[in-house]
Design a protein around this nucleic acid. Structure first.
Lengths: 327, 327
DNA sequence: ATGAAAGCGCTAACAC
DNA sequence: GTGTTAGCGCTTTCAT
């Protein structure tokens, strides 16, 4: 592919002049500009972003980490990230890790080596070292929807998980459920863990404790919509009707949750918005060359809490009298 | 972040020596190696992939273009691409274009400028100039699941769309349907267009023509599963039962299609496999520095046709006698 | 076995 | 207005 110097030679000018017309900085005589533009068109020249990045000491890209692209919530998150990134000309490198520490490590090193400007983390294995590793190298990090993390350095965009789970439990409790179970994420993901804790706290406030066996529960609170939807299928294949025999709730409000054949009661989470906000925060942090969590004097906030309303649909109902109301 | 030269200084050796231990090429004395490794650990040094790329004249990355990441089929395609890319240490740049020519162009230029080694295209607007643009710049391109394209240069991984649609129509026709309609993609996407053509050809073979109005049809063939699933919802909200009043078919066999409450009759497409095969082809093409479509003397094939079996579930049934059997 | 030096394609000072 | 030059952080001959 043609280089700057090839264009310069063809136009009969120097590299700097070509560079100047390309970037629109500095004044260039009208005639010279025209010659250069013709040379560019004739050679099909495209600036080499790698050389630019080397010089700029910035990869001009963002990294995103998600556990599973196939889950619509994470797909939406990535869409939000891409839109926001495109706005500032950043490319986005995606890594989906399936919450395996090995993949997380590999992603961290890849991002570090490619000198991305910041990384947005949408999901992590429980106890992951990734954010610390990244931040120790001076990489700005923002956590999107992960629930509480002890480290104060990363930026955070999240829900009030405690409030959301309280609303779910209140709804179910109000319906008469007393035997509630939690559907854990197969991926052992950190957000799911936070939701489980919040769920159990809400239960404890009512003197209840989570039932361990799916069979014994009259209501199942799933970590996210995809698991809730899968649970409905599993339960119904086993002969238990939802919501007549068991109530099921989700989390995320993926588009499908509203489908007439699913009608899932769930907590709404706007993945696209979350991705967008997280990305804006990440870009701002990169621009100021420091951890996303550190507050800017101008007053940008380091933690954004998005609303997470409970959406009641038809996957929850009062328990059957013969089993649901007992202690 | 520490540079090669910092590590060298700290270890008291030259840049070349550090470079040699990092890449494992060339012999290095045991003691020297140890000193260097300590210096690397102490500085937290990570090689700058940008500088490497500049020198290697390769971005060491692949581009993927999808119309909509939120559609599980494309998400799976990307997953397949990422897995295959990770295997050879390539990063992947994702662009989802929503089939808008502007976004497609932007993605093409971004990929060109970042010097990706090849691009995998999972979806395109009808009449898009993107593949040509890329290939004119010498960029290897492979088309995944797009249906027929005239240009012989790109590599292709696809189904036999004609056979798949013939199977769908045969199934519906066998059930007694005579008034079949096609559910077009809102995105005006090229693959959907190919499926529509194949559908109409299968109809024509039976002396039938597609019915234009959704209301008049006894069977609706959707461009993909997500549209089929949305159609089921729409139809049922309008008071028409599926499959009792209308049959609906999809394409892709996304995980949800098998759900007990959906049970969609559809054509199976393995997105992950498609992404994997396309990526292997793209990488091979990049390695040989030419269009993915050009056959390698060793006999790598330039077109891979994956199986696309019809999966019959419960969204299709015989039409009601009072409307379905008329001509 | 190790080091010196050139160069990848660009940008940014600065000189003219 | 335009050209020259010195890097950006690596890899890669080629000496030693």
């Amino acid at each position: 592919m043609a280089r700057l110097i090839d264009v310069a030679a063809r136009a009969g000018v120097s590299k700097s002049t070509v560079s100047n017309v390309i970037r629109g900085t500095a004044l260039v005589a009208e005639e010279t500009r025209r010659k250069v533009e013709r040379a560019i068109a004739e050679t099909g020249y495209r600036p080499n972003a790698i050389a630019r990045s080397l010089q700029a000491r910035s990869g001009n890209a963002l990294g995103v980490i998600v556990p599973d692209l196939t889950n619509p919530f994470f797909a939406q998150l990535v869409v939000g990230v891409e839109r926001a990134a495109a706005t500032s000309g950043q490319a986005v490198l995606t890594a989906h890790t399936e919450c395996t520490p090995a993949a997380e490590l590999a992603a961290a090193y890849a991002f570090l080596e490619r000198r991305v400007d910041a990384v947005v983390i949408g999901g992590l294995s429980i106890g992951a070292s990734l954010p610390g590793l990244l931040m120790d190298h001076g990489m700005p990090v923002v956590l999107a929807g992960l629930g509480g993390i002890e480290d104060p350095r990363p930026g955070v965009v999240d829900h009030d998980t405690a409030a959301a789970m309280e609303a779910v439990v209140r709804h179910l409790y109000g319906l008469g459920h007393r035997r509630l179970g939690f559907l854990a994420h197969g991926l052992r993901e950190i957000a799911g863990e936070g939701r489980r804790l919040a769920f159990e706290a809400a239960l404890a406030r009512r003197g209840l404790v989570a039932v361990a066996s799916e069979a014994a529960a009259t209501a199942l609170v799933a970590h996210d919509d995809m698991h809730a939807i899968a649970a409905i299928d599993r339960l119904e294949r086993a002969g238990r009707r939802v919501p007549e025999d068991v109530s099921v709730t989700g989390y995320d409000d993926v588009p499908l949750a509203a489908h007439g054949r699913i009608r899932l009661t769930t907590v709404r989470a706007d993945g696209v918005e979350m991705g967008r906000r997280a990305t804006e925060m990440a870009i701002a942090a990169a621009r100021h060359g420091r951890s996303a969590g550190q507050r800017e004097s101008a007053g940008e906030s380091r933690r954004i809490i998005l609303p997470s309303p409970l959406i009641v649909r038809a996957s929850t109902a009062a328990p059957r009298r013969d089993r649901g109301t007992g202690a």
